[in-house]
Design a binder for these strands. Sequence first.
DNA 1: CTGAAAGCGCTAACAG
DNA 2: CTGTTAGCGCTTTCAG
Lengths: 353, 353
Amino acid sequence: MTGPIETMAKTTQEGKSRQRTAAAQVSMAEVARHAGVSSITVSRALHHPDKVTAKTREAVDRAINELGYVPNLVAGSLASTRTRIISVIVPYITHGVFADALQGAADILEEAHFCVLLGNSQGAAEREESIVRTLLGHRPAGVILQGANHTAATRRLLSKARVPVVEMGTLPAEPIDMAVGYSNRAASREMTRRLLASGHRRIGFVCVPPERNDRAAERLAGYREALAEAGVAFDPALVRHAPFSIEEGREALGVFLALAEPPDAVFCTSDLWAYGMIAEATRRGIEVPRDLAVAGFNDQSMAAESVPGITTIRVPRYEIGRRAGEQILARLAGEPTARIVDLGYELVARDSA
Amino acid sequence: MTGPIETMAKTTQEGKSRQRTAAAQVSMAEVARHAGVSSITVSRALHHPDKVTAKTREAVDRAINELGYVPNLVAGSLASTRTRIISVIVPYITHGVFADALQGAADILEEAHFCVLLGNSQGAAEREESIVRTLLGHRPAGVILQGANHTAATRRLLSKARVPVVEMGTLPAEPIDMAVGYSNRAASREMTRRLLASGHRRIGFVCVPPERNDRAAERLAGYREALAEAGVAFDPALVRHAPFSIEEGREALGVFLALAEPPDAVFCTSDLWAYGMIAEATRRGIEVPRDLAVAGFNDQSMAAESVPGITTIRVPRYEIGRRAGEQILARLAGEPTARIVDLGYELVARDSA
DNA sequence: CTGAAAGCGCTAACAG
DNA sequence: CTGTTAGCGCTTTCAG
């Protein structure tokens, strides 16, 4: 165990004067001079090597290497009024679901030589709006964001930006531009139906507050639809809101058991809660699924590791991000694009429900 | 369970002609005209509101709102040769350790109104080099990257860029500029000492191939140092390389048990492996830690959930990213900065070792 | 406190 | 295939 230690810099500070980035950088003009050609020829050797003789290309390449030239993309972007930047905004980077989608988007975009300008909304629509405003200032070639609950201003900004926009992880009735996801409502309805089919009638439901989260709202709607179909009355006492954590799953069990009429099944709309709830049930001698059925959502790694294994909904998280990136690229290439891409979901039946 | 469905766009394609981003955007000049002032006054109203009369400021603000003006940061950056972009490069976004650090960096940087330009090296130094080259083209105000094994060209590029650079998660002898992390070697040595102190002499070691990963190399070195201190001979047969996954932990156990002289303890340098190994041991009726002690690294969420709980090394993952961002900001503000910041680690003793 | 002129480093458009 | 001329939209510098 060690504590924080700081070794003071031996190097002298350069001081406030040298914040300017491009300062001592080599410019294209210098490369041109070095190679005995004009700037535009350097530009062409870089971007359209076939439009330049092999000899010129070599001379330019040599000059670039000798001088250590790194093209200034800021200047290039301004001149061409075009960037190779895609903004990707996610609620939380550390949440597995979003991290996977972000990874998918980053993979395909970097492959296509685009850069990802990252935004982190922390799940707040107002924060998202201010991030969108800033990121649009960088004139991205496209924008990818999570979910569909945005402020009116965010929608307006994105529409006016005249760039491809993809909302991921959900299937909004009116996407800003394009959407890639799956039906949270249908997935939730299907899981609830499964619990009902097993004979459960008192079904608890755990989710994040649905007011500020369209996915949670959709899942709650799906749950209610399935109950209605089966003629089971909706009981608000069986709905519990919580932040994401294993611990909250443990606590939710306690709350449910303290009810006058406790549930005989619980649909946790995150595997984290399901995992915690099962662990706590086991600790209390409640057998899952015999005494209590527990279902999860997302098919995160702990779903398979839990004992019993968690019956859950698997969503194509990585694929959603990747496809979102592909949609942007397709639009930029002038190819026809689908307005809504439904990547589906899969109910993974294990032993917990 | 639903399959992929695509709804074709009803909206007509805008075609190849409209890839240009800034195209129909409102310019500062238009805002100026609308407000009856010059561009430079708009610029000042935006960046130095106190250098402008309240009346002018209001007129400008009104024009901005009416026109929906979004400042073009590309043009601004070119003119000022300065950006508010920090490049952050991580090996994998989905790996919890890096996601946490990325989150830490993003949090502090966005707070300071900087944007994160994300790079994803996939753990390959060559890929990192090409990413660094591209990202530097955007003239970031600073660069944060993971670890210390970079190509010579990467080091050269970053040094020549004349911007603050932070390497995170490790304590290199010769940082490119600054480093924020902890000693992988010391942490590994301490854990190995603990296993030795419990009487173990045949200690297995699981890590990723150390040739391409400086952290793995440091951990291996710490393990060997502790063995040497205790006069225990190093046995290459006890070292296993594997990719990160729970499954690989299960497999590693099988390999170790097949040895003529199997280990009585295993130090897994990732909790993932430790978790899998313990699960597999339990399945085979091998009691942990009585029959086999298993130690982990990183204190990921499964470490506490595992039965028995995993004895592991906790590292300040989020804090490392946050501090890395702070170092960049401090340097940009002209404040003195430490060359190396050791944030330490903590051995978390649970029941597995 | 406000403005005019000049230019950031590059690329588009047109010539040769 | 190569070069010249003009900006991209903003900020810097220097005047008023």
